[in-house]
């Protein structure tokens, strides 16, 4: 839960940000862990939760989305991919050893030319949202996002809003999540940005 991730949509883009801490018990093991996977040329997924489950599930998703793309010449649209991922989690929930993974799926739909963001938790709940957050950071950031989010914002404005969230969490949360990795997806594809 110390892990924090954000998703913000704007005019023609989605920003996905995730902290880079890998911790075990009360010890920081690593501070440069990338917890955002590129699932297809226009699709990002951040993952957090039970260590081990996260990477295992994210790689399972990554391979299956890739397989679909190889078989069918074009990639799944963000809504279709998110629905498939949600179902995979929901199916896993009914097994003896369910994946405990929280996800943000953000993508740019190249068929309808608009950005989409999906918030998914480890119970298999899914909602399409204009902005989202997972982890303790959500308690501080959601009110900020409620106030400052603008669906028509430029990328610079979106990144400024993200910066507000990151700063607030760093200031108020008992444990500072540390550095963040930030990725943007728009009509040109995916790129990493510095904040």
């Amino acid at each position: 839960m110390a892990e924090t991730s954000f998703g913000i949509t704007g005019k023609g883009y989605v920003i996905i940000a995730s902290d880079t801490t890998s911790a075990r018990s009360i010890i920081k093991m690593k501070t440069d862990e990338d917890k955002i996977k590129t699932l297809s040329p226009h699709l990002l997924m951040s993952y957090s939760g039970e260590p081990g489950d996260t990477v295992q599930f994210a790689e399972y998703v990554e391979r299956n989305i890739r397989l679909y793309q190889i078989r069918n010449l074009y990639a799944l649209r963000p809504s279709a991919a998110a629905s498939w991922i949600r179902r995979a989690l929901a199916t896993s929930l009914r097994t003896r050893k369910a994946y405990a993974v929280n996800l943000l799926v953000g993508g740019y739909d190249t068929a309808s030319h608009d950005p989409h963001l999906y918030w998914i938790d480890y119970f298999g709940t899914m909602t399409e949202v204009p902005f989202a957050a997972h982890g303790y950071g959500a308690y501080f950031a959601l009110s900020l996002l409620d106030r400052y989010h603008d669906p028509e914002a430029t990328l610079e404005e979106g990144l400024a809003t993200l910066k507000r969230c990151i700063n607030e969490v760093a200031q108020r949360l008992v444990i500072d999540p540390g550095k963040y990795k930030v990725k943007v997806v728009d009509k040109d594809g995916i790129r990493e940005v510095e904040v």
Binding site: N72, L76, R77, A80, S83, W84, R87
Partner: peptide, 14 residues
């Protein structure tokens, strides 16, 4: 059921 979208036409033909 799997993707919550209508099947693409070519995929159905396939």
């Amino acid at each position: 059921l799997a993707y919550n979208e209508e099947i693409p036409v070519e995929l159905l033909a396939q």
